[in-house]
Structures are given as structure tokens and as C-alpha cells.
Amino acid sequence: MLLYILKRLGLAALVALTVSAISFSLLFLAGDPAISIAGENASSEDIAAITERYGFDRPLPVQYADWLVSAAQGDLGRSWYFDLPTTQIIGDRLGVTMTLGLLAISFALILAIPMGVAAAVRPNSLIDRAALFISVVGQAIPSFWFGLILIVVFSIKLGLVPASGSDSWKHFILPTVVLGYYATPAIMRLTRAGMIEVLSADYIRTARAKGLNPRKVLFKHALRNAVIPVISLAAVQMGFMLGGSIVVESIFALHGAGFLAWESISRNDLPVMQALILVFSMFYILFTFLADVLNAWMDPRLRVG
């Protein structure tokens, strides 16, 4: 077990390393970073000075190795724009994004699991069709557009919730709906498909042959098995959502890490972008690991040998 976790951590580190290497080379290969800092109209002396100061004239692998050494010590560089440690800037913003992510995944699960189960229990019923409709629409609707429509209806026309900002819980309602709805179709489909498969399993027939009441068959025997893959999907989706928060946060001007990413891109603030890519990918890795642990916790076939 310990060996497995060590292996797993090693692999995770290798993935993170590769991601950082790819993003580093992508970011720093494009154009001259010195010009990005100094601005389009800077004099060649300024640019030379900046190049000198940041060491942009060194070969890329050397710069990367340099970045890596400090990253290993918890230093992900300094923002060119704010001239502050990127870790500090990102840390300030992560809370909002995490809150949004958790709210959104809860929203998705609360909507998707009951509907998926109901749809599976009565295929082709009204609720099945409703579930299908929600998932088909959810897959086809671009979240940024959905966000704008919600703003038009609920903020502008009805004046129920604020359209932008991140000061109160009310500001989180619309972003939660948009981001949560984005994750709903996949979870709902998996729940439905999983339930349909489980309901035709031999052990469900056994449970019915025992004369158990239908509710117990459904909730104790079927749902428990069907929900295992759903939980791990949700964890992975959570990882994706944090990365996807950039669109939602910029529509609602929610001051989280995603919004920071968008700002940094328009400011050409490469160290912050680089750090954000790394942070988001580490979150993804963390969530997939959690998904595995959850899976094993829920499925005795993985847990006890």
C-alpha cells in the first residue's frame, strides 16, 4: 500500500513536471519576453537591460532548470506586473475559485444523480425525457453565452441577483449555475447508464428474489454500485472545472484564480500564467488521486484482497 502510494506520487510528480516543462517552453518560446515586460515602445537599451536582469539571453533549458529549482522550494517566480511573488497573488485568489468549484460540483451532483436514477428506473418516461433534454441542452449550450443570458434575465430584467463581483454569496449564484450546469450532462448520463447496467445485474435479481422491498433494492443494492464511477467522474470533473473557471469568472467578474489568469494573459504576465497552469494541473492530479482513493473506499473489491 505504501509502495503503491509512493509510486503514485512519483508518477504525479512526473506528470506535473512534464506539464510545467511544456507550458514553460510554450510561453517563453513565443516572442521576446523582454519586450512583453518593457512594452511595445520601449527603447532597445531598456530591453537589453531587462534581458540582462531576468537572464532571458540564457538558453531556455537553463532558464527552465532555474525556474524548476526555485519552484521546488515553493517559489514560483515573481509577477512582472505586480512585482509580487506569484504564489501570494494566486493564493489570494484561490479561495474564490475553490468555493465556486465546490458549489458548482454540488449543484451538478444534486441535479444529476436524482435525475439520472429516476431516468434509469423508468426509461422513456417523462422524467427520462426531461433528463435527456437537460443533458442534450447542457452539452450544446456554450457556458459563456448561457452566463450572459442568465445575466440578462435574472440581473437586468428581474434584478434578483448581482451580475458581477464577488463580495457576497449572492454573487456566486449565477456562476454556480453556469459552471455546475456545464458538468451536469456527463454526470447525469453516467448515472443513468450505470444504473441501467446495475439494474440488470444478477445481484439485483438476487435481491428481488429475496423479496426485498423495491426501495431497498434500488437504494441499497443498485445505487451503491452505480454511484462508484460517478463519484470518481465528479472528482475529475472538479479538476476540469477549476481549469474551466476562467470563462465563468471573467463573465461575472468573479475575482478568482480564473479571472486572474485572464487578466495575466492580457497583461502578458508570463510568470503568473506559468504558475497558474502548474497550480491548476496540480489540482487536477490531486483530484484524480482523491477519486482513486474514494473508489477504493467505496468498492471492497479494490480495498480488501
Binding site: 506528470v15 474551466g244 476562467i246
Partner: peptide, 8 residues
């Protein structure tokens, strides 16, 4: 999968 698509 670990690379955030939109951001990258």
C-alpha cells in the same frame, strides 16, 4: 488531462 485546456 492535467493541462487546463482553456488556460493553455
Amino acid at each position: 488531462l492535467a493541462m487546463p485546456v482553456v488556460l493553455v
